[in-house]
Every structure is written in structure tokens, then in C-alpha cells.
């Protein structure tokens, strides 16, 4: 029996092989590139022969004016997104839950997921079409005698634009988990409340919302891990040099630093800081989610 079990395990290793090889080549090997963060990397000399400079890159990064601004931008944008991407889908799910016509409910649900499956490249063309200089908003403003404005090049509203369009694109998708949680609420609770004379508002406030609280807490905790991810795809496709002051985030900054200015070592150092902090945050959020919501991904 024992030898047979070993025989089966051999096959299990074989099944793991292609995936582990893929991970090794495209996830694990790049991790060794992290040592570039501690070098003055020179492509001609390669990783093995470039000069070691310790923490010099990190010191230099924090001296740059950009870096502080970029971190501030990242935090404001991501925290704004985290909060609104909880609240708006929650309100949407609560409103949809009050609809009595099942067909209408189904129709709404079908449609609001669409934008989630469109890439930010596609959505950016539409956002620019709406807020661009000769876009929809300016055209409509023109009907009422308004002067066209350069929304896309205005640093004072760019973060709001990012947060708003992200919420617009994702609220339907983010509502899915709430909607699923709502289907498991015991209908007897509502009937009992109605017999006791509760109106709809009171039922929503005292039954629906408490039933959703664990889900809200769970999503909020898990979102913690994303605090340094302000959304590269979105920002990259919407921003321009005129809004760098408020719209440039860690990921876009690292991209320009590394692949446009070819500061490989600096960009690696910045990327390492981001990865390390994110790693800690995600781990903490998973531990919290496990402790308080009994949630586990594996």
C-alpha cells in the first residue's frame, strides 16, 4: 500500500512540474534581479559585475522631490478608491435589493458588469471622449454657453477624475459579493419585521445592513493590501505630463524611471520597496481576515 501511495505521488510531482517551471522562470528568477537595487547596475557589466553600493539607491530615492509627491498621490488615489469602491457598490446593492420586479433586477445586473470586462485602454478612449477638450461634457456645456475646459490636463481635479471613473467602471462588479450575500438573508426576518410594523427603511437599516456587515468588514480588510496599487492601467492611459503633480503614482513613476529614463537600479529599488510593503500589508490583511471573518483563500 505504501509503495503504491509513493507511486501516485510521483505522478503528482509530474503534474506540478510545468506550472512550477513556469513560476520559476517568470516569477522566481526575476526576484533575484532585486539585487540590482543594491548595485549601480550597468547593463554592459550585468548583475554579476556591477558595482555594489549598499543602500545608496534608497537614500537617493528619498531625496528626490518626486518620490514624496508620488507616494502622497498613490495613497490619496488608492484610499479614495478603496472607500468609494466599498460604499457605492454597497448602496447600489441595497437599492437593487429593494426592486420588486425580478426581470428589471436581472436586466440591471446583466448590464452593470459590462464595464469591468473592458480594458482601461478602451475605457480611457471613452473617458477622454467624455472629458476631453472637444468631448461630450464640453459640447453639452457649449449648448448652455459654457466655455470649454481642459479637464484632462487640470491637476486640481485629476485625482477625483481617476477615482470617479474607477468607481463607475467597477461598481457593478464590486456589488456582486454584496448581492450574493443578500440572497442568503433569511426572508422570515423581513416578514417578522413587517409584522412588528417596521417600514422598509427600518428593515434595511436593522436587517439588511447588519447581515452585510461581515462582508463589508472582510472586503475592507482585504482592500488594505492594495493600498499601494492606485491602478497602473488606468493612470497610464489617462494621465499626461500636465497632471503629473497630482496624478503620477508609484507604478507609473517606476515605469518612467526604469524603462524610459533607463535608471534600472533606482527603479528596481523603488519597485522593491513597493513590493515589500505590499507583501506585508497583504499578509496582515489575510491574517486579519482569517481571524475576524474566518476567511481563507486556500
Amino acid at each position: 500500500m505504501k509503495t503504491k501511495k509513493m507511486g501516485i505521488q510521483k505522478h503528482y510531482y509530474l503534474m506540478m512540474l510545468p506550472g512550477m517551471l513556469w513560476l520559476l522562470l517568470f516569477s522566481i528568477v526575476p526576484m533575484f534581479g532585486i539585487i540590482m537595487a543594491f548595485q549601480d547596475y550597468n547593463p554592459g557589466q550585468g548583475i554579476l559585475h556591477s558595482e555594489w553600493i549598499g543602500l545608496e539607491n534608497f537614500r537617493y530615492l528619498f531625496q528626490l522631490d518626486d518620490s514624496k509627491q508620488v507616494i502622497v498621490n498613490t495613497l490619496i488615489i488608492s484610499i479614495g478608491k478603496i472607500i468609494l469602491n466599498l460604499i457605492v457598490p454597497l448602496i447600489f446593492a441595497l437599492l437593487l435589493n429593494e426592486v420588486r420586479s425580478l426581470r428589471y433586477k436581472k436586466f440591471v445586473q446583466t448590464v452593470v458588469f459590462v464595464p469591468h470586462f473592458l480594458s482601461w485602454v478602451i475605457m480611457a478612449t471613452i473617458v477622454i471622449g467624455i472629458f476631453g477638450y472637444n468631448g461630450v461634457v464640453n459640447t453639452i456645456a457649449g449648448w448652455f454657453g459654457g466655455q470649454p475646459r481642459l479637464f484632462m490636463a487640470d491637476p486640481s481635479i485629476f485625482r477625483e477624475l481617476l477615482i470617479g471613473t474607477d468607481v463607475w467602471k467597477e461598481f457593478g462588479y464590486n456589488a456582486v459579493i454584496f448581492l450574493a450575500a443578500l440572497t442568503s438573508v433569511n426572508p422570515n426576518l423581513y416578514e417578522a419585521a413587517a409584522i412588528d410594523g417596521a417600514n422598509r427603511w427600518q428593515s434595511m437599516w436593522h436587517i439588511t445592513l447588519p447581515e452585510l456587515t461581515p462582508t463589508i468588514v472582510l472586503l475592507g480588510v482585504l482592500a488594505l493590501g492594495n493600498i499601494l496599487n492606485a491602478g497602473f492601467d488606468q493612470v497610464y492611459n489617462l494621465y499626461n505630463p500636465l497632471v503629473y503633480s497630482t496624478g503620477d503614482i508609484l507604478d507609473t513613476w517606476i515605469y518612467r524611471l526604469g524603462l524610459q529614463n533607463l535608471q534600472f537600479s533606482l527603479a528596481t529599488a523603488a519597485g522593491l520597496l513597493k513590493s515589500a510593503v505590499s507583501f506585508i500589508l497583504i499578509t496582515v490583511s489575510y491574517v486579519l481576515a482569517y481571524k475576524f471573518a474566518d476567511y481563507r483563500i486556500f
Binding site: P30, M31, L259, F264, T268, G271, A276, S278, F279
Partner: peptide, 10 residues
Amino acid sequence: LFNGGLIPWY
């Protein structure tokens, strides 16, 4: 949960 970052990957 962890990655080497853009440049090492590239």
C-alpha cells in the same frame, strides 16, 4: 504576493 518588480522582470 511578492514579485521582483518591473525592471528585473523585463
